[in-house]
């Protein structure tokens, strides 16, 4: 009985994810914040600097998975609230967790797909190597899920109207780039910076991806996985909590 119910819910998770993929992947905000943003930031970081590009590829991969995964939720949920299509989920016999996981999966797959592009570019054009496939795969997958859940959490904040989600999200995303070992390696940060870096999920994304592509780490891979898993669960639960608060207000 429980297995039947779980199977039914998983099928709905997939149905929601597929629906979101069809509708939101090619929308302008998804392309702008999910693809153009990370690539532009990367180019502004490397152009005019004497830097070995293959060493910077893990940064591009990490930025891409960070921005791409966390963009789909903030595009889909406010729009669905405005068009009242989100009510369809709330009046259907599916749990809120199912709905949010379905939407997270859409962001997750987007993040994975887009982040494989710089991996391929690095391998084909800049002699990057994948030295630890498992670390790279776990780093991208766990990060894609966690950041997709982060996007869902921001999109679920009570009282958020359409167009108001990206601002607070970017207010968090952009500063994280500076404390996560993206522009300055963690080992070169002051002690307070290293503490902040340890708390940032993006740090652990870059660490695993660097490990996967032949770079150095500051933190242990096990810690990277634990922190990313913790954040993924925390973001998902916070998103659920915000939706419940919204329902009480409505």
């Amino acid at each position: 009985m429980r297995l039947d119910r779980l199977t039914r819910e998983l099928k709905v998770v997939w149905a929601i994810a597929v629906k979101d993929m069809k509708i939101y992947y090619l929308r302008t905000p998804s392309l702008m914040f999910g693809i153009l943003f990370p690539f532009s930031m990367f180019l502004s970081f490397v152009i005019g600097r004497s830097m070995i590009i293959s060493r910077a590829i893990p940064v591009l991969v990490a930025q891409t998975v960070f921005f791409a995964s966390s963009t789909i939720g903030p595009v889909s949920i406010p729009l669905e609230r405005r068009m009242q299509t989100f009510d369809r989920f709330l009046s259907a016999p599916v749990s809120l967790l199912t709905v949010l996981v379905g939407k997270t999966i859409a962001g997750f797959l987007y993040g994975i797909g887009i982040s494989l592009i710089p991996v391929a570019i690095g391998i084909v054009f800049f002699s990057s190597q994948v030295t630890h496939l498992v670390a790279l795969a776990i780093g991208i997958a766990l990060s894609a899920f966690g950041f997709a859940a982060m996007g869902i959490m921001f999109a679920s904040l009570p009282g958020q109207g359409p167009g108001e989600v990206m601002m607070p999200l970017n207010f968090v995303r952009i500063p994280l780039l500076f404390v996560s070992g993206v522009y300055v390696p963690v080992k070169d940060l002051p002690s307070w910076g290293q503490i902040a870096s340890a708390a940032s999920p993006l740090t652990h994304t870059i660490e695993l991806i660097r490990l996967g592509m032949g770079g150095e780490n500051f933190f242990e891979p096990a810690l990277n996985v634990i922190i990313l898993t913790f954040y993924a669960m925390a973001f998902l639960l916070a998103g659920m909590r915000f939706h419940i608060m919204n329902k009480k207000r409505e």
Binding site: I23, Q84, T85, D87
Partner: peptide, 12 residues
């Protein structure tokens, strides 16, 4: 449920 708004997905 038939809500007041015709809330299906325009793109589908």
């Amino acid at each position: 449920v038939v809500p007041e708004a015709s809330n299906l997905y325009d793109e589908l």
